[in-house]
Design a protein around this nucleic acid. Structure first.
Lengths: 157, 157
DNA sequence: TGATAGAATTAGAATCATCAAACTTAGTTT
DNA sequence: AAACTAAGTTTGATGATTCTAATTCTATCA
């Protein structure tokens, strides 16, 4: 261990993968009384041992409370981050579906990757943008319907 | 090596990291006569040995031509993919800058991550969307300017 | 209570991307 | 040509994420 103190795993930032686990666990804990390793594995599309080892990592980072073979729970910090990532996901999903008119499955898939790529500044701007579009600027016409028409006809009127 | 033939490295799809290298090399080869390991390292923000080992991988995948200590060149395939990723980057960048009005540096940073996250369908829809906005629908007023105003005043007229 | 099925964990391995340190090569300078 | 410098490479290591196979635990059922 050298002088660059970048090495303390329990202090380093979360990787996108870790964020995904927190988001998944957050969602599961809202759906069910207890969160099971099996369910996390299913949601994240990995095998159970992978989950077990990630749980260890997340415990060390203070994101979950978990003792071998026992129940697991997000800590306050873990829950905050989980819900924050979920929030990003929902925002991007809405943008893709409502504005860009992407189909739901594709939107979910894209949102899942984009949630780690988009900066807070850009996400905020997307929120502003959706608000703006939904309040429909200039005249009373349905702006989104125009985009739809444009897409279907290939060219604007 | 078991029955799941997913293991043949030279056949597996490119990872996002490999795509980044191809994009970077593609850009460098447009700027300079010869592409140097040092420059790739600088552009990708990694050390030279990392580049060397990635060059080996990309050679095995048929993306570049490269012999030890000698010049390197993208193959047709490598060049196609490099330019394709660059294209994605440029599209996303334009969207972030022109539509969402994100500042250039931030836009570049975000585009760099988003280029691996966004599906072809969504990217195409973004292109449509920009086209639509730039052809300014309904009446002749400058729609983008309205969004600007909305952002600055906090609420629409 | 014992047997058993299913859930969770450990052990051990592989892949990917990265680095520092040490070494080699190529292209100048003198 | 010998020496030097900068570029490139090899070696060996680490961390992150994943897997399979083997093991351990828990809870239920007969």
């Amino acid at each position: 261990m050298n002088s660059r103190d970048v090495n303390n795993a329990s202090k380093r930032n979360l990787t996108p993968t870790m964020e995904d686990y927190l988001e998944g666990i957050y969602n599961l804990s809202q759906e069910k009384r207890v969160v099971r390793v099996k369910d996390i594995a299913k949601k994240l599309r990995v095998k159970m041992p992978t989950v077990t080892s990630m749980l260890k990592t997340l415990s060390e980072k203070g994101m979950i409370d978990h003792e071998k073979y026992e129940d697991l729970e997000l800590t306050g910090k873990g829950s905050d981050i989980g819900s924050q990532i979920d929030q990003r996901h929902q925002t991007l999903r809405r943008f893709l579906i409502d504005i860009l008119q992407i189909d739901h499955d594709q939107a979910d898939e894209d949102a899942c990757k984009m949630e780690h790529a988009v900066s807070p500044a850009t996400l905020e701007r997307i929120v502003d943008f959706m608000e703006f579009v939904e309040h429909c600027p200039g005249s009373g016409n349905d702006w989104l319907a125009l985009f739809n028409e444009y897409r279907n006809l290939g060219s604007p009127g």
